[in-house]
């Protein structure tokens, strides 16, 4: 953008004013530069500059607790990272968390959308209630679940478990249950998103195809499998892409509910990078973890976009 502005400026000197259209185009370019520059600079400062600085700090040992050891270490942080069990564990947790929440959101969201689409009355209730979870702060959602839903011998879910004869469970203290809990909480908050997008997409499908299918006596399953699903595919893929990106960098809900624990049971890579940098104050290594997260994000989105383009 900045370079476009510069070339426009140098062009001015060499151009005769005979070409009125050309001058107009030039003015338009300069005006565009003027309008874009502030936002562009702000984005450079708040996204691109941090990225470059992050790559720089990832080549340093930078411990705020032991500053006397700080210094340039080259690729040492990345070498450590590759043999760091906690890193690989957090990567696995990230993938499990992302894949399970995205699949659950799409399946439940799609089922709900199909269900609500066929409702004759009461659609409005679903539409209003679906808005609530998605506008809430994940931190507040996490807090509500951690306390009023899951706290042992207090939360409603624990109450239901006791009533059902399962006994009180330490929902957030048991590694497996904690993982299930954070997956359920994320799914609870974001399924309405999938639901709303898919419902909007369903509502825009052409009626007449279904008419034709009904005349041909296609069963409900056939209609779903052969008509609805293919037509919804772009919307479903979009939901998958967006939700994957969010799940990979989920933070607030896990942070408030388990803090990554017990131990590292729910510590996704994002949270590990945070803990390393701001709890253990090891900024250099934390930066390397953040770069690793960026690389994972880019690889996964490249795969997803390839899927979206293919077929």
């Amino acid at each position: 953008m900045a370079s476009a502005g510069n070339t426009a400026a140098t062009d001015v000197a060499g151009v005769a004013y005979s070409d009125f259209g050309h001058v107009l185009a030039q003015r338009e370019r300069r005006f565009a530069t003027l309008l874009l520059a502030p936002a562009f600079l702000a984005l450079l400062a708040t996204t691109t500059f941090p990225l470059l600085f992050l790559i720089y700090t990832s080549a340093y040992r930078m411990d705020l607790s032991m500053p006397f050891l700080n210094g340039f270490v080259g690729l040492e942080n990345y070498k450590v990272l590759l043999s760091d069990d906690r890193f690989w564990h957090s990567l696995v947790v990230s993938l499990v968390y992302t894949i399970s929440t995205v699949i659950l959101q799409v399946i439940v969201g799609l089922a709900l959308a199909l269900f609500v689409m066929n409702m004759k009355r009461g659609q409005g209730w679903f539409r209003v209630i679906a808005i609530l979870p998605v506008v809430l702060s994940p931190a507040v959602v996490g807090m509500i679940w951690r306390t009023f839903m899951l706290a042992p011998e207090f939360g409603i879910i624990d109450y239901l478990a006791i009533s059902a004869g399962l006994g009180s469970k330490n929902w957030l203290g048991d590694p497996f249950l904690a993982m299930v809990s954070v997956v359920v909480i994320h799914t609870w908050q974001w399924t309405p998103f999938a639901f709303m997008v898919l419902l909007a997409s369903l509502a825009s499908l052409p009626e007449d195809i279904y008419e034709a299918a009904r005349i041909d006596r296609a069963s409900a399953w056939q209609r779903f499998r052969r008509i609805t699903l293919p037509l919804l595919r772009p919307a479903i893929v979009m939901v998958i892409i967006m939700r994957t990106m969010v799940a990979l960098t989920a933070f607030a809900a896990i942070f408030t509910v388990t803090g990554g624990g017990p131990g590292t049971a729910t510590e996704i890579l994002n949270l590990y990078a945070y803990r390393k940098s701001f709890t253990e104050l090891s900024i250099g290594y934390g930066s390397a973890l953040a770069v690793a997260l960026l690389i994972v994000t880019v690889i996964i989105s490249a795969i997803l976009f390839a899927i979206r383009r293919g077929k």
Binding site: A8, L43, G286
Partner: peptide, 25 residues
């Protein structure tokens, strides 16, 4: 203007950065 496509893409791409990668630096 020249570079319009690139600028638009740049604005989108900045959203790919994980927030934790921004907050550390």
């Amino acid at each position: 203007f020249r570079g319009k496509k690139f600028t638009g893409f740049y604005v989108l791409a900045t959203q790919m950065l994980p927030p934790v990668g921004i907050i550390i630096p």
